[in-house]
Amino acid sequence: MNLYFRLFWLFIWRTRHCKSIGFLGTSHIRYRALPSDCDVNFHLTNSRYPAFMDLARTYMLAEMGLLKRFLKLKWMPIVNAAEFTYIRDIKPLQIFDIETKLVGWDEKYFYIEQRFVSKRGLHCIAYVRGVFVCKGKQVPIPQLLDAADFDAAPPELPADVLHWKEFLQLKKQRNT
């Protein structure tokens, strides 16, 4: 089981009672590391981070007011790449927040930053690159922005995201 109860709770309760954020706002969702989320080292297992991040990105779309609209359009988010930096572990039963924000986009992908934080500080920072697809085809970024009613200038991508993009391009070139 991969967080099915939390996914159910997210759709049934949390998305109906969430605050509203702007398209470039920061979403916050709180979780507790249950013993079933932890590994033999008594901390949140590495495989749980991306699963929690999926939930947090879904919640961000709800806070932006886009989740229902995108579901009606049958637009499904697809992660193309992810990069993690683990800083300190999350202990069993520890409460933590996931801060999620859209940091920018290019001609093909959107980029999201996600941070795991608690009273102990920053635990993990991750970047996700992705697209939305509908009927097997990518939804163009301009169409996505139009559906989100966003017509301002795009934010400048953070330097670490630009470096990561270069690294991903290099990997692609070396492996095709």
Results as ranks from 00 to 15, higher is better:
His163Glu: 13
Arg129Leu: 04
Phe70Gly: 03
Ala51Leu: 07
Leu102Pro: 10
Leu7Gln: 01
Asp160Glu: 14
Ala33Lys: 02
Thr176Lys: 14
Tyr127Pro: 06
Ala82Glu: 12
Ser20Gly: 05
Asn41Phe: 15
Lys137Asp: 02
Leu10Trp: 03
Phe70Tyr: 10
Ala148Gly: 04
Arg57Lys: 04
Asn46Lys: 06
Ser27Lys: 01
Gly22Asn: 07
Glu107Pro: 09
Lys172Gln: 11
Arg174Gln: 15
Leu7His: 06
Lys68Trp: 00
Val139Pro: 00
Leu7Asp: 03
Gly121Asp: 00
Ile29Val: 02
His163Gly: 09
Asp37Gln: 00
Ser36Pro: 01
Leu144Val: 02
Leu73Met: 14
Glu99Asp: 08
Leu157Thr: 03
His163Pro: 00
Glu107Arg: 15
Thr100Asp: 00
Lys19Glu: 08
Asp89Ser: 15
Leu144Arg: 08
Val161Met: 01
Gln173Cys: 11
Arg129Met: 12
Ile95Arg: 15
Gly121His: 01
Met64Ser: 04
Trp13Leu: 10
Gln138Val: 13
Thr85Trp: 10
Phe96Gln: 09
Leu55Ile: 10
Pro92Ser: 05
Cys124Asn: 11
Gln114Phe: 02
Gly65Tyr: 06
Ile98Lys: 09
Gly121Gln: 00
Lys135Arg: 12
Lys101Phe: 07
Ala81Thr: 06
Pro155Gly: 04
Lys172Arg: 14
Gln143Trp: 00
Leu7Met: 08
Glu166Val: 05
Leu71Thr: 14
Phe110Val: 04
Val161Asp: 07
Pro142Gly: 05
Lys137Glu: 08
Met76Cys: 10
Phe52Gly: 05
Glu63Trp: 09
Phe167Trp: 11
Thr58Ala: 08
Asp97Val: 05
Trp75Val: 06
Thr15Gln: 12
Leu71Tyr: 10
Tyr86Ile: 03
Val161Phe: 04
Ala56Gly: 03
Asp146Met: 12
Arg129Glu: 11
Phe96Lys: 09
Gly136Gln: 01
Ala153Pro: 07
Tyr49Arg: 02
Leu144Cys: 02
Phe23Thr: 04
Leu3Pro: 06
Lys72Glu: 12
